[in-house]
Design a binder for these strands. Structure first.
Lengths: 175, 175
DNA sequence: CACAGATAGATTGTACACAACTAAATTTTG
DNA sequence: CAAAATTTAGTTGTGTACAATCTATCTGTG
């Protein structure tokens, strides 16, 4: 099948929006429309980012989640699995195999902490640290692709960060 | 490990932002900071949505991507796999197994078109159509959780839709 | 009609992502 | 200090998600 998936539905096979912005009266039952869902817009943007990053990162031998992990490690040099999970919002079920793959490609090393044998410290190898230089061109490429000005990006990022915090809070009623 | 992942890093183990909004001078090399990446904010929001929807949809016997597929089908009653892929921005490698699972749970039926034996039409079963009634409460629950006003949501959704279109365009230089 | 090319889905392989569970180590408590 | 509770990673199972590839079918051209 078509490998370029379904980019830019310029010729909507399924008519993308019934009226684009009917923000006003939503009296009856239009709340279950796909194009009206904020969650879908977020989901679609996330996958579009992934598709754009994929070929760039492939040259560096990284997947997109691995790139996010490297961003955290380039900043902190060394983190425990829990700290990395906290930064990336990922749990051990995702991180354990991801870090194992990154260790097998020589970007990081994992070693049990001597002071607390429960924790595993993930550290950059020289090779992993050196990769930062090759990654420097990535952000500018992505920035250009967004077609947005830096302040617009900052605004959007802030809105999303706040949204995420609100969703988290709603998801943890008690705590 | 902790199953509640790493929600609300209220007590930043890895200090979430070095200065929150240093939108101004980014002269040197701060472009590779995790918290500065719009892509990460989008990615995090997407996963936060998924976590919030999960328990709600679980009661309906749906996963989040399956819910999105149902939204499209509740609107159109019946779609080919390609049309559904176009609406959801998913390819056949994802949709084939997903639809097979939905068929096994009795929500949809799949049948080869007589007019074009290559295409497969996905249609709601009575059970799948009836599920819409039980799903009606979902959007309001999510809306409340966002803590946003409807017009704020519309604005954010529009910004994300535009961003997605820009990323798609950049990803398809020629076409 | 023959046949090259295009199209529709399915399949295979790799990589997230999370729930549920397990094992091991540490901390808290009585 | 010993038992209970907590914390830290890892493992297993299910479900996306996409690239690459495959088969079947259809379409266009001569």
């Amino acid at each position: 099948m078509d490998r370029s998936v379904n980019r830019a539905p310029t010729e909507g096979t399924v008519d993308p929006a019934h009226s684009e912005e009917g923000v006003a009266a939503i009296g009856h039952e239009e709340t279950l429309h796909l194009q009206r869902q904020l969650c879908f817009a977020v989901h679609a943007a996330s996958r579009a980012f992934d598709a754009l990053y994929r070929p760039l990162l492939s040259e560096l031998g990284l997947t997109y989640p691995q790139y996010l992990a490297m961003l955290a490690l380039w900043e902190h040099r060394s983190l425990t699995v829990t700290e990395l999970g906290s930064a990336l919002r990922l749990d051990s079920g995702t991180l354990s195999p991801l870090l194992k793959r990154m260790e097998s490609t020589g970007l990081v090393v994992r070693e049990r902490s001597r002071s607390d044998e429960r924790s595993v410290r993930v550290s950059l190898t020289p090779s992993g640290a050196a990769l930062k230089e090759r990654a420097r061109t990535v952000p500018a490429t992505i920035l250009t692709a967004t077609g947005m000005a830096p302040d617009e990006i900052a605004t959007l990022r802030a809105a999303l960060t706040q949204l995420t915090a609100a969703l988290d809070a709603a998801d943890t009623p008690g705590a």
